[in-house]
């Protein structure tokens, strides 16, 4: 029997679900290997009977917390795709302010109608089997992981810094151009995409397991920096610091 797969979206821009739909031709091949039983953005049919749950989006309301717990109970494997579900993502920028303040900035006098809690990654609420951060999710990596799972293999997710891939891509280091980059402490796997296209790394794949050990120490040393120095300069994807509940 084909494994049953369900997609669920939480607080997100839905860019990650769109990336999955962007597999185009590959989607059709994937459909031969598994059965999609839930994908609200794509199909009307829905089912509560599934083996693999694929989650995008951060947890940012009490209703989200209850819903993700229910999904965790039903699924034997839970995968988070994208920076929002895996790291909390850009949503966690709001955590720098009291929730009353963000509500009143956006809704003014009507703030009392609504509820919100500090945004957090899925792993802060329930155990996650595989986390695939990146904003949006890296579709090639996602396909690899799904294929590995279907073959009963353990997917490999890199634990070395983006700098390693950046050098392979023969990019000029942005530190040499007088700018700052989170690549030395960020988990590789994107081929240093942003640097290749003229930008720097914002850390959307999250930090390596231990930034003090697994970082690109050569790059840091060359520019007289510590892992902590650069992490402190960025907050877009590193705002969640709460660990798990």
């Amino acid at each position: 029997m084909k494994p049953k797969v369900a997609f669920f979206d939480f607080t997100s821009c839905e860019g990650c679900q769109l990336e999955v739909l962007n597999f185009e031709q590959e989607v059709l091949q994937l459909l031969n290997l598994l059965e999609i039983v839930n994908f609200r953005e794509l199909m009307t049919e829905r089912s509560d009977d599934y083996d693999i749950a694929i989650i995008d989006g951060a947890i940012s309301t009490d209703a989200d917390v209850a819903r993700i717990k229910e999904i965790r109970e039903r699924a034997s494997i839970l995968i988070t795709i994208g920076a929002c579900s895996s790291l909390g993502g850009v949503n966690c920028l709001k955590n720098a302010y009291p929730m009353e303040e963000v509500l009143s900035v956006v809704y003014g006098d009507a703030a009392g109608y609504y509820n919100t809690i500090p945004a957090r990654p899925v792993s802060a609420v329930v155990p996650v089997d595989y986390a695939l951060p990146q904003c949006p999710v890296n579709k090639a990596e996602f396909l690899e992981v799904v294929k590995a799972l279907l073959l009963g293999k353990k997917p490999e997710i890199p634990n070395y810094p983006v700098c390693a891939e950046c050098k392979m891509a023969e990019n000029a280091c942005v530190f040499d151009l007088g700018r700052t980059c989170l690549g030395p402490v960020t988990r590789a796997g994107c081929n240093a995409l942003c640097v290749t296209w003229g930008r720097h790394c914002w850390g959307c794949r999250g930090l390596v397991d231990d930034p003090n050990v697994d970082a690109a120490t050569d790059v840091l040393k060359e520019h007289g920096l510590t892992a902590e120095d650069i992490v402190n300069k960025f907050r877009i994807y590193t705002a969640w610091t709460g660990g798990s509940e």
Partner: peptide, 17 residues
């Protein structure tokens, strides 16, 4: 839909960000 509060949370970011 769960709101995300972009107008509140982007405050203080540099324009490139």
């Amino acid at each position: 839909e769960a709101p995300r509060f972009f107008e509140a949370m982007m405050r203080g970011l540099h324009y490139h960000d």
